[in-house]
């Protein structure tokens, strides 16, 4: 599996839109996840399956903590996306524009060709899909039963397949179903399909640090974030679990979280009820309620988060 994320070169642009930090390039999303343990939150719809909230799609929103961490590590830099687009679109004329339109056109043609091939091979694909499905079931069955099988084969959806599958996706959408959408004949038989590109610029093509953006401003809990991240935890937003951070021992794709982390200031009084609530909630959802804070008096020679102390509280259930 050779993917484009292997060709990602740092630093990476982070889109800043109205004070929010976002990533639109899936290769960057995958790269940050694999290489830097940064998960962000996917907040968009999945066009292949747009009527559900269980899976989310691009863009990925980064916590300011994550953005700050990446900038500090010089993994990423921040681009003011609105300014960039205004400037770009206002001046997109002549040859540049032609080139842009031409690239979309050829992409659209390619998809059209694929779709036509696809409809020819419809029956074959249907057959093979059944086969893959069976294989998938087999492999996932093995995976969950904890037997000693080899890693399951690649279960990814191939792109043409997902385009063709579009027709089934709307079925969840009650009265607003568009049954004829994908399977029907397209606009006309020789024109390219219109394409909406996902990103506006290639990750590597931007001039590095075009205009300097200030570092993301982060909450006080940043040192706890940095502390946990430096210890190889994966960190997600915590509101659903009543905490600052939901802390995973590995990629949240594969693992349950271990800790519900809440940050306190070093000398802050912590109300007893808060400890009880957190401890109780954590234990009930099988996670540790973790409180942490930074000793601001301590030596600050090391990395961010080095002077953080953490404690884990469990509800005794007595």
């Amino acid at each position: 599996m050779v993917h484009s994320f292997e060709s990602i070169s740092e630093p990476i642009p982070i889109s800043l839109i109205s004070g929010k930090y976002m990533i639109f390039d899936i290769s960057v999303v995958t790269y940050l996840r694999r290489t830097h343990h940064i998960c962000g939150t996917l907040i968009g719809s999945i066009p292949q399956n747009p009527q559900q909230n269980i899976f989310s799609g691009l863009p990925m929103e980064l916590m300011p903590e994550e953005a700050k961490f990446l900038v500090q590590k010089e993994v990423a830099y921040i681009v003011d996306d609105l300014a960039w687009h205004k400037q770009r679109y206002d001046t997109l004329t002549g040859d540049d524009k032609k080139k842009y339109l031409e690239s979309l056109r050829s992409a659209g043609l390619k998809v059209r060709k694929a779709a036509q091939d696809n409809s020819k091979k419809r029956s074959e694909i249907a057959l093979s899909r059944i086969a893959t499905k069976k294989a998938k079931e087999k492999s996932s069955g093995e995976g969950s039963s904890g037997t000693l099988a080899d890693p399951p084969p690649n279960t990814s959806l191939d792109d043409t397949g997902s385009v063709a599958e579009d027709s089934t996706t709307d079925s969840l959408f009650g009265g607003e179903s568009t049954a004829s959408r994908a399977s029907g004949t397209p606009i006309s038989s020789d024109k390219p399909f219109p394409v909406t590109p996902t990103t506006s610029y290639a990750t590597s093509s931007l001039p590095q640090n075009p205009s300097h953006q200030p570092d993301p401003s982060v909450p006080l809990s940043y040192s706890l974030f940095a502390h946990l991240h430096a210890r190889d935890y994966y960190i997600m937003p915590g509101l659903r679990f009543g905490c600052d951070y939901n802390v995973y021992p590995g990629d949240p794709l594969r693992f349950h979280s271990h800790f519900l982390a809440t940050s306190f200031e070093w000398d802050q009084d912590i109300p007893m009820l808060d400890l009880i609530g957190g401890g109780r909630l954590g234990t009930a959802v099988k996670k540790g309620f973790l409180i942490g804070g930074e000793d601001t008096e301590a030596d600050t020679e090391g990395e961010w988060g080095d002077n953080v102390r953490t404690f884990c509280i469990e509800w005794g259930g007595m």
Binding site: M1, H3, F5, I26, S27, V29, T30, R33, R34, L42, I46, P47, Q48, F55, G57, L58, A107, G108, V111, R112, A115, G143, L148, A149, D150, P151, P152, N154, T155, S156, L157, D158, D159, S162, V163, D166, T178, S180, R181, A182, G184, T185, P186, I187, F193, P194, V195, T196, P197, T198, G250, D251, L253, R254
Partner: peptide, 29 residues
Amino acid sequence: KHQDGILAASREAMHDVLSYTRVHTSRQY
């Protein structure tokens, strides 16, 4: 390695799903 393999497959699946490009193939364009 078994576990690593499953994780890799999950990441792969996520990558593939989100690599989708919006192409307007429908008559209801």
